[in-house]
Design a protein around this nucleic acid. Structure first.
Length: 558
RNA sequence: UGCCUCUUGGUCUAAUGGCAGGACAACUCCCUUUGAAGGAGUUAGUCGUAGUUCGAAUCUACGAGGGGCAACCA
């Protein structure tokens, strides 16, 4: 046992191995990571993997993590996104050491550019974007030098200063690194460092009309902050050569970049561009639509930070492409909610039961535990009387063998109440069952059952007289295929148009009236629910977070 | 017909030249006043070929397959 535990502790992911090696060799005394979102959209579950890795690693090894907004493209970025990103990170349970912005470094980055120019490592190119693309070559053919490549450092500096001063039109000139147009790595074929944009920046306003590209901002920002381990996703592997090139030419602190495989989850999409499309084209109600894989969407739906953190921990960190089953995330949501959610009974599709031997006009208060998993969670009162609702699907006229619910002559327990016997089904002119007549066993009351009866089924129910009508929103996967991004054609062709199911009126036990926005509920035999942001005291609205595991539904499919 | 990168049960992920293990899923059984939760168990894997080695998931070579790279995006 002891050995087994040791064995588990020894198992490190590749980033932990690198960090432990760096710490053991004395390369670093402590580590500093960073989470570098671009404020051009809301964070999604993929980002939460990155957040858990960056903050988690720092926490594990006694280091720190900076939050740095990668705000080098004023056209797409906005302060609204900055605020949502900060809220989401805190909600996940992490706190950053410093809040920085790449735009804080614009003056320094500008000096870095001048240094490269003076060293002969960068030049101003007057080519149009089409001309640059044409000379770039292809993955299998080398590119060709730009006709402006051999300008003198003096000429380049003069031109670059004038670019900064706004003397040239947007798009008319760029600053490029002078590396190698024949490099097998396309990124190294004289990459663009700066472009002219007369756009308003969310922080620097109109101060700058040149903006650094990602490759000339990110690594240097890491270096300025003395980030020890700069962790990013696989698509930046080819950029690492340029990352190192810039640091070397500039002679600045050598931050190191390491790459891991981004998170993919089936039946959804995981790119801000695609999520933005879903929002803009009204396929969803917004970034925080409960069907969205955004952190704000999952929060609204009722997912918990712990569930997401446990999920991130369990999926691990590696360099293999992956497509994780959404069921795994749901497992962690259930696991957390099972321990914390308050139990309530709610009937979605009511069928009236008259308990014919229960005195008319009598009501008794039964006690129901708030959470059987939590000793000190207390109880709530549940009224019981002659007329109640049960779930329509819990009655069958011709039940199959293993149907442990209601049918003529069958007995079931009403949760927290009595065992009843179903005697008669009342039908309307069309043959639809309108109500059931049952009798109860007085000595079978929950907690003081002396009937000696054993029943196989237990049903949830509500007392009709004080049932509270509530609205319930149920969600299904947003897409009909496992990996919409990899399908032929537009990913939007695969949207599941039945992903939202509205139950305008469900009937809840009276205790539901005390529901608070931050509380999580388990509606017995239904699933986990929480109040939606659109809920009001006049009309309670619940989101279904995730259903309970349903062995019966599985049995029926066979 | 370039360069980079990856390949372990259905899905993720361990193994660091020495017994292929865990989680989810699936299945069976037990338990049950939630067909939930819980408990016990079962099924199932190293992309291929050759080599190195006493011994290869791990090292080497070749091959196959997946992903990425030609935005004044990050």
């Amino acid at each position: 046992m002891e050995e087994l535990k040791k064995e588990e502790e020894k198992s490190l992911n590749f980033l932990e191995e690198i960090i432990e090696a760096d710490l053991n060799s004395g390369k670093h005394k402590t580590i500093l990571t960073r989470f570098p979102p671009e404020p051009n959209g809301y964070l999604h579950i993929g980002h939460s993997k990155s957040i858990c890795i960056n903050f988690g690693l720092a926490k594990k090894y006694g280091g720190k993590t900076n939050l740095r907004f990668d705000d080098t493209n004023p056209v797409t970025e906005d302060t609204e996104y900055v605020e949502s990103i900060k809220q989401d990170i805190r909600w996940l349970g992490f706190e950053w050491a410093n809040e920085f912005y790449a735009s804080d470094y614009f003056p320094q980055l500008y000096e870095f550019a001048l240094k490269l120019i003076r060293q002969g490592d960068a030049y101003v190119d007057d080519s149009t974007s089409e001309e640059i693309a044409a000379l770039k070559g292809t993955p299998t053919e080398p590119g060709k030098n730009s006709p402006y490549r051999d300008r003198t450092p003096q000429e380049n500096e003069d031109l670059f200063v004038r670019m900064k001063n706004g003397e040239f039109a947007e798009g008319s000139r760029t600053l490029r690194a002078k590396i190698d147009m024949a490099s097998p790595n396309m990124i190294m074929r004289d990459p663009l460092l700066y472009r002219i944009k007369f756009a308003h920046h969310h922080r620097t306003g109109d101060k700058w009309c040149i903006y650094p590209m990602y490759d000339f901002a990110h690594g240097q920002s890491d270096s300025i902050e003395k980030i020890t381990h700069s962790i990013c996703t696989l698509e930046f592997i080819p950029h690492r050569e340029l990352y190192d090139w810039c640091i070397e030419k500039l002679g600045i602190y050598p931050s190191k970049q390491y790459e891991f495989a981004r998170l993919n989850i089936n039946y959804t999409v995981m790119s801000k561009r695609k999520l933005l499309q879903l929002v803009n084209e009204k396929h969803v109600s917004g970034w925080d639509d409960p069907r969205m894989p955004t952190i704000s969407g999952m929060r609204r739906r009722g997912y918990t930070p712990k569930a997401i953190r446990d999920f991130a921990e369990r999926i691990g960190v590696a360099r293999r492409e992956n497509l994780i089953d959404i069921g795994l995330l749901e497992f962690f949501v259930r696991e957390d909610l099972n321990k914390t959610a308050l139990r309530r009974m709610v009937v979605f599709d009511p069928l009236k039961i008259v308990i014919t031997n229960y005195p008319e006009g009598q009501t008794e208060q039964l006690a129901g535990e708030n959470n059987p998993e939590e000793e000190n969670s207390g109880t709530r009162n549940i009224p019981f009387s002659r007329e109640i609702y049960v779930e329509r699907e819990d009655y069958m006229e011709n039940p199959p063998k293993k149907f442990f619910r209601l049918g003529i002559g069958k007995q079931v327990r009403l949760k927290h109440a009595y065992i009843i016997t179903c005697n008669e089904a009342i039908k309307d002119a069309n043959g639809n069952v309108t109500e059931l007549h049952c009798t109860y066993i007085p000595e079978s009351r929950s907690g003081s059952d002396t009937s000696g009866l054993k029943v196989q089924g237990t049903l949830h129910w509500v007392n009709i007289a004080d049932a509270v009508p509530v609205k319930v929103l149920e969600y299904d996967r947003l897409f009909k295929v496992e990996n919409p991004a990899s399908e032929e054609g537009d990913f939007k062709d695969y949207i599941n148009e039945n992903s939202l199911h509205v139950i305008p009126t469900a009937y809840a036990e009276p205790a539901i009236k005390d529901a608070k926005a931050d509380e999580r509920f388990q509606f017995l035999r239904k699933g986990y629910f929480c109040l939606d942001t659109t809920s009001s005291s006049e009309k309670l609205v619940f989101n279904k977070t995730v259903g309970l595991k349903d062995t019966w539904a599985k049995e029926q499919k066979k």
